[in-house]
């Protein structure tokens, strides 16, 4: 038995060392939908995949502001580090009953990162403005503010022109 101890030790050590990389690798998650996985650590390189929000990726390494990742299907590529999060989205709030503010029906909690799901002024806000006799122009101003959007494509062009975001340091 004593003679077998060193052997057992080395077998165990060898087993740990030979564990598949993904069991030791850190898992991160797409912070939002539409996160691109590039072939190289550059936003202009070929897009290999587009991730849905909360999609897990295994971290293989990093270069500058990019993280090398492996997807669930085995694809390897690079993702801009600020488009990854340490955790998946969690339910955010859910308790204060908005309807209680107005005496109306229940409004259920929404999850965090619901991006884009809420459109237009909420009736309670309109009601507030009317009750307080706030000029109609200011309500229209808010509607305009909520309507006014810049597209993802515009944003990408803007960042590229200014060499900011994922284009930082690009030529």
């Amino acid at each position: 038995m004593t003679q077998s101890t060193p052997i057992l030790m080395f077998v165990l050590a060898g087993w740990l060392v030979s564990l598949p990389g993904h069991l030791l690798a850190e898992t991160l998650y797409a912070a939002k939908s539409g996160v691109e996985v590039n072939q190289d650590p550059s936003p202009t390189s070929k897009i290999l995949a587009t991730l849905e929000r909360d999609a897990p990726v295994q971290v293989l390494g990093n270069k500058d502001r990019y993280v090398q990742v492996k997807l669930a299907n085995g694809t390897k590529g690079w993702v801009y580090q600020f488009k990854l999060a340490k955790n998946t989205a969690k339910p955010e709030g859910g308790a204060i009953n908005l309807a209680a503010l107005t005496g109306g029906g229940n409004i259920h909690a929404k999850e965090a990162r619901s991006g884009g799901s809420i459109r237009g002024m909420q009736p309670v806000a309109v009601g507030y403005a009317k009750n307080r006799h706030i000029d109609e122009n200011h309500i229209r101003s808010l509607e305009w503010m909520e309507w006014f959007q810049v597209s993802d494509k515009e944003l990408m062009t803007f960042k590229k022109e200014g060499r900011i975001g994922e284009f930082l340091g690009s030529k």
Binding site: G93, L98, A125
Partner: peptide, 15 residues
């Protein structure tokens, strides 16, 4: 306390 959810937060923000 129970946190304010995103819809309530938005309604407060709009006002």
């Amino acid at each position: 306390m129970q946190p304010i959810n995103e819809e309530a937060e938005r309604a407060l923000g709009e006002t």
